[in-house]
Structures are given as structure tokens and as C-alpha cells.
Design a protein around this nucleic acid. Structure first.
Lengths: 211, 211
DNA sequence: ATCATACCCGACTATTTATTCGGGTCAATA
DNA sequence: TATTGACCCGAATAAATAGTCGGGTATGAT
């Protein structure tokens, strides 16, 4: 196992990481100096230059123009691929939901990535035949184009709903289909907006602490 | 519906957001000026001051000491509460996993939040009685202290495993219990490290595109 | 032994960037 | 119509910050 990075370099990486984490923006040379316990800018510059060459961080000219690159996060032992889940309180999805006390807000400056995927609590039994039960939560990946047969999250006016999206060659051509014979299918209208596709289901019983 | 924020203020907020998103660090006054199409710092300062008063952004003295606060993200129509899932390739969890082409890496400067929760693919049938099947994925929330009965992700040497954590008043006192009668329980040893608690299960059939 | 490399010092200079000053316009409102 | 608030100008000053110079000390490899 060969050493890609020296201990000191890694330490600097950690300092940068910690700083960003707590303040929301990158550190200056002076701030790095202090957290590293050195007194010269050059010391920081030397280390930083190595990190830059190794594509662990990027640095542009100017104040605080520093960012950690994927390789850097990897070295910090944080997985490079992530999925963001938003737990919405308002806005896009229709109703506020709360996911037990276990899940909590994370630092603000990051919540911006939540475009990708968000989470919704399901109420009702209209999709039980697709394995989605009342009280489950679903992950919705936002997208624009949909394929017939996908389970989607749609908004109809102010209300959000989860149904199977279908398009046919016979009337009503395009519609939402509940997965429960008790319910009628819903023809597509212009008040209807498809927000995303359900990519996962989180079963109700697992959100709660398991006794 | 009363207006909390003016159009121009919101525009600045958007400019800041976009800048951070693409560069990884906050903009300077000059950069905001340009993206806003004004020529005076004061113009930016005025708007920024409002955003600051309204607790939409925070601003410290110094270069690029700017960050968006939760309220700001809310105004940008991004959910304020988020959960981060890491999909690991190596390191903490035992094996690389890939979640269909649908899920993709997000900007690097953010992956640092993944300490919270990560995702693992499950192989094997040792937990079928707890509803966790081969091919499912689970969400693991990292923590240090565990309660008897929780389903946990544990590492034994290099290998990761999912089991129910149990502690008793009779031997073997502390152990991991498979939820499948085919398998034996595993007494706790010092090579064993509990990484986190399973908080959700993503059923295999929902990762794949639904036909 | 000499060389390269990782690391460090202190001080100086150059540059970037923020901050402040003293105004002005326009539209809504009292 | 006088006032206020939102927005804007250009220019000067003040501050923060980066970048650079010319070194030094170890340590391990050639």
C-alpha cells in the first residue's frame, strides 16, 4: 500500500475540511496557519501546492478560493458518491413531513443539493399493490420525462399524489393509475404536474427505532 | 400572502447560490455586481444588508465570508431539512455498490456531509425474517451507542455484516443475531466494530427502473 | 557525500476585496 | 407634497489576504 499523501498534508486537508464545515466557506492562509500550528504562509503554501498537484484540492488565485476535490473527500474517508434526500416541509411536495427524531438538518450551505432526490411520506392505500403502504416513505427523483409504467409523484393543484404513470394507444391515452382496484384511474390534465419518479420505498416500520 | 423579500433581493440570493454551486466558494462583491448587472458595490451592499437582516444569508467581515442560511434555501425553494446518503465505493462499508445509472455523484464540495448516513447493498439471506432480503439496500445511520434489539451494521475485520444487536443477562451476554434460523448467533469480540444502525430498507425491486 | 524532498521560518510586497462616503432616482404612501 | 424605502452611482479609503523572496533543517535515497 503506497502512500499517496503525507501525514502533514492530510492534516492540512483535515483542517480545511473542518473549517468549511463549521463556517460554510473556505479558510484563508492565516486561518490554515493557525490550525496547523505553523507561522509562515510558505509552510501552508508548500503543503497546499502538493495537494493541488495531486488533485486533492483546487485553488484559484484570490481570497478563499479553495475547494476540496472528490479525491480529497475520498482521502478523508468519506464516500465519493452521494445521494441527497430532502425531507420537505413545504414547497414542492404538498405536505410537511417529519422523519422521526433520528434525522436532522445538516449544515445549511449544503442543502442546495437537494434538487436530486427528495423524500415523501405516503398516506393512503392507493398503491398497496405496488408495495407502497400507508406510512411508508418514498424517495422521489426529480425528472422531466417519464416512461409509461413508472411510479411517479405528481402534483395536482396543491395536492401531491403517488400513482403509476401510464400512456396507452387508447383513451384516455395518458393517465395516472392507482395500484388498488378500489380506486379509479385519473386522466392526465393540464393542472397535473409530474415531479419525479419513485425510486425507493422506505418501509414504515424501519423508520422507527427497532425495539 | 405577504412579500418577505423583493424580487431584486431574491435575484441576488440566486446569484450567490449559483456562484457557490459552480465554484464551491462564495462570491466577492465584484462577482455579485457583475452577475447582478450593477456597477457599484453599494448596490450589492444594500441588498445584502437586507438579506442579512432577514436572516437569509450570513455575512462576516472579510473576503468571501458569505453563506446562505436555512431560510435562504427555503426561499430558493429547496427543502431546509435534508438527509445525506452516501453510496460507498470503499472504505467504511465492505463492498462497493452501485445504484443503477439513475443515481449519480453530486458536487464534490458537499460529500463531506455523508457522515450521517450511508447506504449499503445487502447480500445474503441472514436477515430475511427482519424483512431484509438479498439485493436490498439499507440506510445505515452511524452512531456510537446501541440498544439491544437494534439492527446494526457491523464490521468484523474487513468484512461488513448486518445483524440484530443483542445484549442479555445470560451468556454470551453481547452478540449479533441473524434473523434466519439457518444461522448461528455471533458472540461479540474485540475485532467487531458496530458502525451504525439500520434505519431504512430500500427494496431491491425499486432501485431498478420500474417497467 | 550529495541530492532531492518534505517541511519550515520571517518579513516584505502586491493584490484583491471590503467598506465607506456622499450623493441620485423612482414609486408608493402618509 | 413630503417622506420613506428600495435601489442605484462612482470614487476613495481601509483592510484583509495572497503571493513571494531568500533562506534553514532534517531525512532518506543515489
Amino acid at each position: 500500500m503506497e502512500k499517496l499523501i503525507t501525514a502533514r498534508q492530510k492534516q492540512l486537508l483535515g483542517v480545511i475540511y473542518d473549517f468549511i464545515k463549521s463556517s460554510g466557506y473556505p479558510p484563508t492562509f492565516a486561518e490554515m496557519r493557525e490550525n496547523l500550528g505553523v507561522s509562515s504562509n510558505q509552510s501552508v503554501a508548500d503543503l497546499l501546492e502538493k495537494l493541488r498537484q495531486l488533485k486533492i484540492v483546487k485553488k484559484e488565485t484570490g481570497a478563499r478560493t479553495l475547494a476540496i476535490l472528490p479525491l480529497g473527500y475520498k482521502l478523508l474517508n468519506l464516500p465519493p458518491l452521494v445521494l441527497i434526500l430532502g425531507v420537505t416541509t413545504a414547497g414542492m411536495p404538498a405536505e410537511a413531513i417529519e422523519i422521526s427524531g433520528e434525522w436532522r438538518p445538516v449544515s445549511q450551505e449544503v442543502s442546495r443539493l437537494i434538487e436530486e432526490v427528495f423524500m415523501l411520506k405516503v398516506s393512503g392505500d392507493s398503491m398497496i399493490n405496488a408495495g407502497i403502504d400507508d406510512g411508508d416513505a418514498v424517495l422521489v427523483q426529480t425528472k422531466k420525462e417519464f416512461v409509461s409504467g413508472e411510479i411517479v409523484y405528481a402534483q395536482i393543484g396543491d395536492e401531491g399524489t403517488i400513482k403509476r404513470f401510464m400512456s396507452d394507444d387508447k383513451p384516455p391515452y395518458v393517465y395516472l393509475k392507482p395500484e388498488n382496484p378500489k380506486y379509479q384511474l385519473i386522466p392526465f390534465t393540464h393542472e397535473m404536474e409530474l415531479k419525479g419518479k419513485i425510486i425507493s420505498i422506505l418501509k414504515n416500520n424501519y423508520w422507527q427505532p427497532i425495539k
